[in-house]
Amino acid sequence: MSVPRFWRELDTRYNLIGSYCKITDTYHYPRRSFNPEAGRESIGSMEDYQFKGTGTVVTPTVVHQAQTGYEMFGPYCMAIIELDEGPRITSQIVDCRPDTVKSGMRVKSVFRKLGEDSESGILHYGTKFILFGNDIDDELDEDSIDDVEL
């Protein structure tokens, strides 16, 4: 990612800054200057909003063939997460065994390195998520979608 392309969205990535639409009373992430549901009326009615960073796992998947730049994590958990304010986001869930993540689990945001341009290029930082406040059974999970005969 080029320097200006990353820099322009620093606060969106670092601090989960999105938008609040005054017309429909809805939250949006990433930042939008226009709410597709409210149409043209929403232009000028979108306010910056910092998300609390808490949410719920909608659907997780364990990635065994890593995305470029994520090789050191493999296997890792990617999930669609619903933030408590409503919008959904696709993020890695870190600091856990990837197959322990289940739909409905609570997550919170953490500040992490997202990647780098190259060994000599700039570093990209932003938000990922960790599990918190869930009772995780550390035994081998029988329900793991990986093991079950589907």
Binding site: T59, V63, Q65, Y76, M78, T90, S91
Partner: peptide, 23 residues
């Protein structure tokens, strides 16, 4: 690219999420 691929989601992982929801 910015909010899926760069975040670590492979193209397969997105379809894996779709598959799980269909299941």
């Amino acid at each position: 690219e910015q909010w899926e691929a760069k975040a670590g989601a492979t193209f397969t992982s997105l379809h894996a999420i779709i598959a799980q929801n269909h299941m």
